[in-house]
Design a protein around this nucleic acid. Structure first.
Length: 209
DNA sequence: CACCAGGCAAGTA
DNA sequence: TACTTGCATGGT
């Protein structure tokens, strides 16, 4: 059986991305860089509680004050600057208008996001897939690990190459890419702790597509 | 106690 | 170009 069906049979739908608004999902994409979602959740709760999850409020908030609110997410000083950079980008390129940002073309959005310091390929693609709901496949460390351990890819494969491997072998459907990435994270969390290749892995004997 | 978590940029040679 | 290092809290 193929990878997607093995995972969804095992775990069911994951209902990603956690977040009620596009801005919340975008902030979460920065905050979760190399950080567990549990810690990110506390940081987002702080922002929500103080009514700061708003483009204008964040734009006018000093980085040091933002850093205090997002402290539980770790790397708080650098993430405060990164989040400010992303907000500045929205204000300067889209007049701080989220609907304007969300209606732009995918290629232009990705190029713009990648020009923001602190937004790399995974963060940009997470924003495109989960906030802007584009059919963009998100690659992360779990995706590399699972495919590498199962002998599907070489370790020196690039982000864009691995992304292309999925996108060229799957129908370009946003809903599918959303669930697929969430299931990869779920599967890795359950079965990829420690051992190079877990004997319990539900993907043993699988096919990519 | 060590190690990891839904990365990224800057520094080094 | 190809590594290496800093960033930092919270859970196991």
């Amino acid at each position: 059986m193929d990878m997607f069906n093995l995972m969804i049979n095992q775990f069911g739908a994951q209902h990603w991305w956690p977040g009620d608004t596009e801005l919340e999902m975008m902030a979460g994409a920065i905050l979760t860089q190399n950080t567990s979602w549990k810690n990110v959740d506390k940081a987002i709760a702080n922002l929500k509680d103080k009514g700061l999850l708003d483009i204008e409020r964040l734009y006018n908030l000093p980085p040091a004050a933002l850093a205090e609110e997002i402290r539980p997410a770790g790397y708080f000083n650098i993430k405060a600057v990164r989040l400010k950079n992303l907000i500045n980008f929205l204000v300067e390129q889209y007049s701080g208008d989220m609907s304007l940002f969300l209606s732009d073309k995918t290629e232009r959005l990705r190029e713009g996001l990648l020009s923001v310091k602190g937004v790399g390929p995974e963060t940009a693609d997470s924003i495109l897939l989960y906030a802007a709901r584009r059919a963009v496949f998100v690659i992360d460390a779990y995706t590399y690990r699972i495919l590498y351990r199962h002998g599907i890819i070489e370790d020196q494969i690039t982000y864009d190459e691995l992304k292309e491997l999925f996108e060229s072998n799957l129908p370009a459907e946003e809903g599918l890419f959303n669930e697929f990435h969430a299931l990869i994270v779920r599967t890795a969390k359950e079965f990829c702790k420690g051992k190079p290749l877990c004997g319990q892995c539900p993907l043993n004997g699988w096919e990519l597509v």
